[in-house]
Structures are given as structure tokens and as C-alpha cells.
Amino acid sequence: MTWYAIIGALEQGLVYGIMVLGVYLTFRVLDFPDLTVDGSLPLGAAVSAVAITKGVDPFASILLAACAGFAAGMVTALLNTKLKILHLLASILTMIALYSINIRIMDGPNVSLLGASTVLDPFMAAGTAGYVVAPVMYGLLAVLITGGIVWFLHTELGQAMLATGDNPQMIRSLGVNTHHIIIIGVGLSNALVAVSGALVAQNQGASDVNMGIGTIIAGLASVILGETVFGSTGVTRTCIAVLLGSVLYRLAIAMALGLKLGNFAVTPSDLNLITALLVVLALMAPGIKRKFGGRAK
């Protein structure tokens, strides 16, 4: 693996790490499997890209993306809580609806950002090389957001959210409207995913309606990988673990892509298979550790 590939994987791991934190919020904290993310990632990308081409500041465009993502998450949560649609189905409905909406927003299947300004511009201007600025900048942002989530989960509201996922009956009997908590939680999760999508679009120089495919699987793989490798005792540790899990996941993918066995070379179309294998391996890990005498936790 070349340095170039490693830095690239690190960069991607950090950018998508923000999405992974969102998936952690729904999947683990709220116990709400949410497939909306496959739609809200390109939604964030679309909103940000269109805003930038219309002359909006790149940073402001990310805020707009976050709002759009929050709204998408709210729709899923409302379908689930108010209309009593199963969470999985509710999220799939929002996801496919977003496909059409994203094309409407972009007025086509994609928007190019070539030559447009991005959040990295102010730092590039100082003359630092792009391959240094991007990982550092995304790393800072990812760490900042991780810190924010850790803080949030320790607030009264965040604690109520953790309890809603763990024991809804109990927290209702303590006077919490679990519907509101689910709406806020799924909204927040998708806001993070949209921010991640916006950054990806600015990083890749384009927003595409199909860029969200497989987001949920990548997110789950990162969460499970991170928890397995770095542990999941306590909220703070788990949040850091899932962010690192995201980097680890992208490194594993980059490594697999560089794999050549004789005439056989892994192609990007094999990524889904590799992801599935990675998830299975990560899920099996605790059992394997026990079997081979390692002290499993």
C-alpha cells in the first residue's frame, strides 16, 4: 500500500467518520435501524453543492446541508412514531423518496464542483499542500464533532436518549416523551450524515445522486469494527471507537483494493462483498478471541 493510498483512506475515514457517528446514534443509542442515511448523505452533498454553485459560502452550505439532513431524519421518525410504520420500513420510504428529491434539488443526477470554492480553500491559500490540509482539517472537524456528541450524550437530553434506546418503558414512566426523543435523535443522526455528505462532495469535487448507495452498510461496518477493536464500554469510549472504526474500515478497503493474487485483482465492484465479509469477521471476533484463549471482555 502506498502512502498516497493510506493518506487517502485516512481522509475518507475521517470524512465518513462523521456519518458513522450518525449511524451510531440511531443504530446503537436509539436502537433504531435507520436506512435514511443512504438518502441523506447525497442530500447533504446535493444541498451543499447547489448552494456553493449559487454563491453561498462553503461553510454556510454545510449548515444548510445539516438542516436538510435533520429534516429528512425527522420525516423518518415521524413516519415511525406518529403513523406507527415500522422503523426499518419508514426509513426505506424516506430513502427512496430522497432519491427523487435529490435529483430535484440538483436539477439533474449530479452537480460538478470543479473549480468551486470548498471549506479547504482558506487553508490551501496559506500554501500548504492539499494532501496535508485535507486530513488535518477533516480530522479536526471529526474530533470536534465527536467531542460534541460525547458532550451531548452526557446532557439531560442525551441521557434521556440513551435511556430511550435501552428501556423506553422506564423512561416514559419518568416523564419523557419518547416520540420527541426519537425525532430529535434520528434528526440529529441524519444531520451528521448530511454534513458528511457535504464534505465528501466538496472533497471529490462533485455531488452525485448515487453516492449514497451502501452508506448504511459502510456505517454499520465501521461501528461494529470500531467497537470490536477499540471496545465499547461507556459512551465516550464508544464514540471514539466508532470514529477510529471508520478509519480502520477505509484502510481495510484500500488494502483490499490493492490486493493482487496472480491474475486476480480486486476491483471496486467487489467492495460490497468485502464489506460484508468485514462485518461478518468483526461480528465473529469476540467468539474467536474466546476460542483461542485470549481474554475476551
Binding site: H154, T155, E156, L157, G158, Q159, L174, G175, V176
Partner: peptide
Amino acid sequence: QNLALAKRRGKRRGFALGV
């Protein structure tokens, strides 16, 4: 944390630290 959740029974839950 459990006791802190119970201590806010019936009150608004905001962005103050839980415990």
C-alpha cells in the same frame, strides 16, 4: 445516571449535564 434521570421526572430535559 439512572437516579439523575429519575430526579428530572416531569421536568424539561435540556442541555445541562445529566448528573
